[in-house]
């Protein structure tokens, strides 16, 4: 093919190199994902909250029947003295048991933690707290689970950090472990308390 030589050979060379370039780029990306899986910075299963930086939805929940703690409404999350943690939990949820000691630690440190019992019978929720200790200063019941959906909750436990302006600053889906406390929650609490 004589016209082959007249066509720009470099263009053809670049074209032939494209697959390699694409494969290399993809490979780098996959490598970064695998590394991220190890460090936790990449998680294909996590769902971010749509409410970060926004105020929580408007809601008014009653306390579970038999509870002597104050209930929780959206108004209670506005104009706060210090950041609070809102925790969705349930007595039937196993990871909530794992999380519980960390919530108790927060209580001892004087961090207000507001609990919302998700799809739980009032007696069961109160029984859970009676057995394991109560970390909450306010307690509400969301038996139908509808307020949780307004918050964007997709499983329990799930926790939201509300700053003094009443905006959601951090959301954690899954149990707050000691590592999560040290790495994420405590630094954030310090930051938003200042």
């Amino acid at each position: 093919m004589s016209d082959e030589t007249t066509a720009n050979p470099w263009r053809r060379r670049a074209l032939l190199g494209l697959p390699l370039l694409a494969a290399g780029g993809a490979g780098l990306g996959f490598w970064a994902m695998l590394r991220g899986l190890g460090t936790g910075s990449y998680d294909p299963h996590g769902v971010p909250s749509a409410l970060l930086g926004k105020a929580p939805p408007d809601f008014a929940l009653a306390a579970p029947a038999g509870s002597d703690l104050p209930a929780l409404t959206a108004a209670d999350l506005r104009g706060l003295q210090r950041p609070v943690l809102v925790n969705f939990f349930a007595s039937w949820c196993v990871p909530c048991v794992i999380e519980h000691p960390q919530l108790m630690t927060l209580k001892r440190q004087g961090v207000p933690v507001f609990g919302i019992a998700y799809k739980d019978k009032p007696a069961d929720a109160l029984g859970f707290l009676a057995r394991r200790g109560n970390p909450f200063t306010r307690l509400a019941a969301d038996e139908p689970g509808r307020v949780a959906i307004d918050w964007g909750v997709y499983g329990v436990p799930e926790s939201y950090l509300i700053d003094r302006q009443g905006l959601i600053r951090w959301r954690w889906a899954g149990p707050i472990t000691e590592d999560t406390m040290a790495a994420d929650l405590l630094p954030l609490l310090r930051r938003y308390s200042a």
Binding site: G17, P19, L20, A23, G24, G27
Partner: peptide
């Protein structure tokens, strides 16, 4: 394999 194949191709 893929990189090798495509490098050879290029």
């Amino acid at each position: 394999y893929v990189g090798g194949g495509f490098a050879l191709f290029a």
